[in-house]
């Protein structure tokens, strides 16, 4: 049963990820990226980590993708920006990436990763919070300063320059 759900989510995620790269209109790319991120959140649920899944849906789908869509709509992309995929000039790059991908998959399936313990407990938000505010308190504070800096930087970058 879990395999069925895994395959469903994984295939949808890969197809929509491919659509992000191949679709010509950036708005369509943004919507398929949203679909891909939701599928990845579902994979996180299958990996027994509901907190990361919810954070993924809130932050990626709720904030980041809405920001992307707003920018795409504000900037009014003309026909000039719309291109075909794959571009003829870059077929060689695609070949190299395909070879690397086959190599990577061969290594992954040849490696003895083993399987997860069958009775793996679902991690609770409580345990994540305890770990985050005790052992990883310093990285947490650093990340909050990074967020503050990014907030200020984004406002200053996007502001109309005073003449």
């Amino acid at each position: 049963m879990e395999k069925f759900f895994f395959l469903m989510f994984a295939i949808t995620a890969l197809c929509s990820g491919l659509a992000v790269v191949t679709l010509r209109n950036p708005v369509h790319s943004a919507v398929s990226l949203m679909l891909c991120l939701v599928q990845v959140a579902a994979l996180f649920v299958l990996l027994r980590s509901p907190f990361v899944a919810v954070a993924q849906v809130f932050i990626y789908v709720g904030a980041v993708m809405v920001l992307f869509l707003f920018v795409v709509l504000i900037l009014d992309i003309k026909k000039a920006a719309i291109e075909t995929f794959p571009p003829v000039k870059r077929r060689f790059v695609g070949g190299v990436i395909a070879v690397l991908g086959i190599e990577l998959l061969a290594f992954i399936f040849a490696s003895p990763f083993g399987t997860a313990p069958a009775d793996a407990a679902e991690t609770t938000t409580e345990s994540i919070g305890k770990l985050l505010f005790t052992k990883y308190l310093f990285p947490f504070e650093v990340v909050s300063i990074i967020l503050l800096a990014a907030l200020v930087a984004a406002v200053i970058m996007a502001k109309e320059r005073q003449r």
């Binding site: 990361v52 932050i59 990626y60 990074i146 990014a150 930087a153 984004a154 406002v155 970058m157 996007a158």
Partner: peptide, 13 residues
């Protein structure tokens, strides 16, 4: 995820 959100905000700015 957090750093990505910061990166996207700066990149779009």
């Amino acid at each position: 995820i957090t750093v990505t959100a910061a990166e996207v905000a700066v990149a779009l700015g």
